[in-house]
Design a protein around this nucleic acid. Structure first.
Length: 480
RNA sequence: UCCUCCUUAGCUCAGCAGGUUAGAGCAACUGACUGUUAAUCAGUAGGUCCUUGGUUCGAGCCCAAGAGGGGGAGCCA
């Protein structure tokens, strides 16, 4: 009774009674017999049900794409081409009809935009079920990798009173009655009367709390939802996304790079080894999408080829300064094809990153040692540098087609130096608990943040981040 | 938030220079067909042409504002 369609399709003993349950993908009828393909999410493949037209006349009238069936019958070697086994129905129970007058999905290709507007039903299609199976596999592989490598799963808070990290606009969390806000003597909102007695927000990063974990447990990682209230409308931003943030005591920036590279290659290999059917399907979809593009914009490799390439080749590692020099010496720069000026000190624009990754190196790139001025306060400062050219041990991993997939750094562990930065930003008091890690038993340490959906985007070859999370949250969109 | 493109049947799209009954494929429905593979064939039904206002004798088409969506940019993961 617990047969999945995956297990039925792999069955070695045939001509036995069995039961299959699933949703109808398609029905084809001829005079004497109807064929119904059934899918239950256990695989991208479908099981063909063979139903006698007279015997199941009533049931067949109620069976349309999207209906849910329980079919009892005999599993036999298929008489037709296209599948190895099929189920000859002896009893069909229609568990749920899907009235075709109202059910939006049809046995045809829909646009991703249409499916996005029907996100409550899109797990029932090939593309999205494949994407979500791969998403699951990657999520599992993340836990497996860290567990196998001595990391502890560390839960940083979702609700936080800290807004010091500066990672982006925050969603406020309050239990106050917004129609009747309490005010203090000065007429400001009196947060002392709020649930936590102070203003609170949804987390934009678990990093600072992750560091606290690393300073006792050694190696930890967080993997949880993260929230940014930015008005971002792009194919690679979400207001609610999942982030993986490992934090390791005694790791310097080079250990950090070794880890992130090994980690990413492991995850991609895991997907190749465990999601072959889904990736093959997604690859066909990917190639179809690519063929619509102009010749010069088409990808040079198929999806699976691209994934294998990343697994088999080392990432390119270089410093920010080296990257700037490559950009300055490029034909793109000489022909003035860059919209934004290239010079030491700028924050690299998308076009610059894309040039480095997609045109120059044609592989993933790890950039390090960014100018201090454009990076976060907690990053470790390099020693003995020319004034005005100070750099920090930051590390960004850039992927083709995705851009920044990982941002990380070695952390500043010297109390005086870190405090100098928090003083500049007037956050020393607020972050006293964070600074305490440097006051008591400080240690060199490093970490990074991986955007989970960006990884899923890369592995599945999808083009829009809204299509790799079941229920995307973006500006003006919180349906379902 | 900025730039740009788009919105016509349940879905994907066409619609000639603004001209009278707005089309196709798929889906649905009816029927035909020796087990099909996005089956095939014949027929039927299905539309506030995103909304509002304007120009015009006349608007799916032109103009303006608004709404929704795509792509690019910024912010970043």
């Amino acid at each position: 009774m617990k047969n999945s369609i995956l297990s039925l399709l792999q069955a070695t003993t045939l001509d036995v009674q069995t039961v299959a349950k699933g949703w109808v993908r398609h029905k084809r009828s001829s005079q004497n017999v109807s064929f119904v393909t059934l899918n239950d999410g256990s695989t991208i493949k479908t099981l063909q049900i063979v139903a006698d037209a007279d015997k199941f006349a009533e049931e067949l009238k109620r069976i349309h794409t999207g209906a849910c069936l329980e079919v009892h019958g005999k599993l036999i070697a298929s008489q037709g081409a296209g599948q190895s086994v099929e189920l000859v129905a002896e009893k069909i129970i229609v568990l749920g009809e899907a009235n075709p007058e109202h059910y939006p999905l049809q046995p045809k290709e829909h646009t991703l935009e249409f499916l996005r507007e029907n996100a409550h039903l899109r797990a029932r299609g090939n593309t999205f079920s494949a994407v979500f199976r791969v998403r699951h596999a990657l999520g599992y592989a993340i836990h497996k990798y860290f567990n196998d490598n001595g990391f502890y799963y560390w839960h940083s808070p979702i609700i936080t009173a800290s807004d010091a990290e500066g990672a982006g606009e925050m969603f406020q969390v309050t239990a106050l009655d917004l129609k009747n806000l309490p005010k203090d003597d000065k007429g400001n909102i009196d947060f002392k009367q709020d649930f936590f007695g102070r203003p609170t927000n949804l987390t934009v990063s678990g990093q600072l709390e992750g560091e606290l974990g690393a300073m006792g447990l050694g190696k930890v990682y967080t993997f949880g939802p993260t929230f940014r209230a930015e008005n971002s409308n792009t194919t690679r931003h979400l207001a609610e996304f999942w982030m993986i943030e490992p934090e390791m005591a005694f790791y310097d920036i080079h250990d950090n790079m070794d880890l992130v590279e090994d980690f990413l290659r492991y995850l991609i290999k895991y997907a190749l080894d465990n999601c072959a059917d889904d990736l093959e399907f997604l690859d066909q979809r990917f190639l179809k999408e690519e063929s619509k593009k102009k010749k010069e914009e088409q990808a040079e490799m198929s999806l699976v080829e691209k994934l294998r390439f990343v697994v088999e080749n080392q990432f390119e590692r270089l410093t920010y300064t080296e990257a700037i020099n490559i950009l300055l010496n490029s034909n793109y720069h000489k022909k003035k094809k860059f919209l934004f000026e290239v010079k030491w000190g700028i924050d690299l624009q998308s076009e610059h990153e894309r040039y480095l990754v997609e045109k120059h190196f044609k592989k993933p790139v790890i950039l390090t040692n960014y100018p201090k001025a454009i990076k976060a306060f907690y990053m470790k400062q390099n020693e003995n540098e020319e004034a005005g050219k100070e750099t920090v041990r930051a590390m960004d991993v850039l992927f083709p087609g995705i851009g920044e997939i990982v941002g990380g750094s070695q952390r500043e562990e010297v109390y005086e130096r870190l405090k100098a930065r928090t003083d500049e930003m007037h956050i020393t008091e607020e972050l006293s608990w964070y600074l305490d890690t440097r006051r008591f038993g400080t240690a060199p340490h490093s970490g990074f943040g991986l955007g989970f959906e960006r990884l899923v985007l890369f592995v599945t070859g999808m083009g829009n981040i809204r299509d790799v999370i079941p229920f995307p949250r973006t500006p003006l969109n919180a349906s379902f």
